[in-house]
Amino acid sequence: MTSLPTTFNAPGTVLVLGGRGRFGLAAVQAFSRNGWRVLAQIRPGAKAPEVKGVQWLAHAVDSVAGKKALIAAAQGVTVVVHALNPTQYTRQAWARENGPLLEAGMSVAQALHATLMLPGNVYNFGESMPPVLMEGAPYRPSMAMGRIRTRMEEQLEAATQRGDLRAVILRAGNFYGQGQGTWLDLAMLKGIRGGKLVFPGPLDVATPWAYLPDLAQTFVELARMRLTMAPFESLHFAGHTLAGNDWVQDLQRVARQQGWLGEAQDLQLSGLPWPLLRLLGPLVPSWAALASLRYLWMRPHRLDNRRLLSFIGQEPHTPWPLALGRTLQHLALLPAAPAPVHAMATQA
């Protein structure tokens, strides 16, 4: 293992833009647990989640007045986590909103002389991506949302080259483990209590998954090390590399334990109607966006994190059975008590 740099940064003050979202809230919780002073931005009128010790700032970053007020309230911030997302998961919303949201985050970070941290995805690599995605690999996006993300990252890197700010991108696979609106609750697990599982791709194709508490903790570790890095870093979070068979095996065990299946029964498996999603995509933009991601389920790939490890030594990693158990608890599919999770972990 590569030796760690000797310079560590003590906890400071972090501003999380989009603190109510799936990743945003995980980041708020992780930084708070690790002793940082946490400021979290939400839209005016939005209800602030209950997280002890967090100061919620209700300012709209997409207005000049809101951005000025946010900057004034966030003096002393040394790290800005960009967890803002478009209002819809469609190509049109991404094209319309992602650019202005990134520019707002960049201007806030620049005004505060803070490092901007951004979660990335694998869309940049496109359908021709290799099975192992190395840090620094060239981008060849093959669909609109990948091209949008690539332009965003190029814009961010150019700003760091001009000396406008410092930035870190941490790329990860499919999010799971906190919040709703992911593949899990929208498709895969909708019928799990009835013994049914939807899996979007072949069961033997392994792809990267990011357990959000682990990803958020990695942001904390990188924030501590930010001043040892170059002005711009694009790193990979390996997370869990899982095939459909991994999901089936462990979910089948849970389903039997919970009485959703008999001891001799197996989960009923089905896939997504990809041709229908593509056919109706022009009428339902969110289906068109999902259809454009089909290749990610068909091509085995994983994220190589060796450069990340050169900075933090070890990637935060919750064992898969424990991460799955906590995810099911969060989705109210398992009791909130910890006993079922520990029971699952001992069987791994």
Rank of each mutant, 00 (worst) to 15 (best):
Q217Y: 06
A26S: 14
G53T: 01
V79S: 08
P273W: 13
I192F: 01
W274G: 05
Q217M: 12
K196M: 04
D266V: 05
N305Q: 12
R294C: 05
Q161P: 00
V80Y: 01
Q155N: 10
P285E: 04
G35E: 11
M145N: 11
A230S: 14
L328K: 01
W274P: 08
Q88K: 09
Q110C: 06
W274I: 03
N85I: 07
L331V: 02
L101G: 01
R278D: 06
P138Q: 12
A339Y: 01
Q258L: 10
T207W: 12
M298A: 12
L328A: 07
L308Q: 03
P300D: 10
A210I: 05
W36L: 06
L328Y: 08
V248M: 03
I192Q: 04
Y176K: 11
V168Q: 04
M143L: 02
R22E: 05
G136Y: 15
N98P: 00
A95K: 04
L293H: 08
A336S: 09
P44Q: 10
L309Y: 15
L235I: 03
K52P: 13
L189W: 01
L322F: 07
A339I: 04
M1W: 15
G126S: 07
R43E: 13
L283P: 00
M188W: 00
S3P: 13
R166L: 06
V28G: 00
G262R: 15
L235C: 01
A238D: 09
V14R: 04
L215V: 00
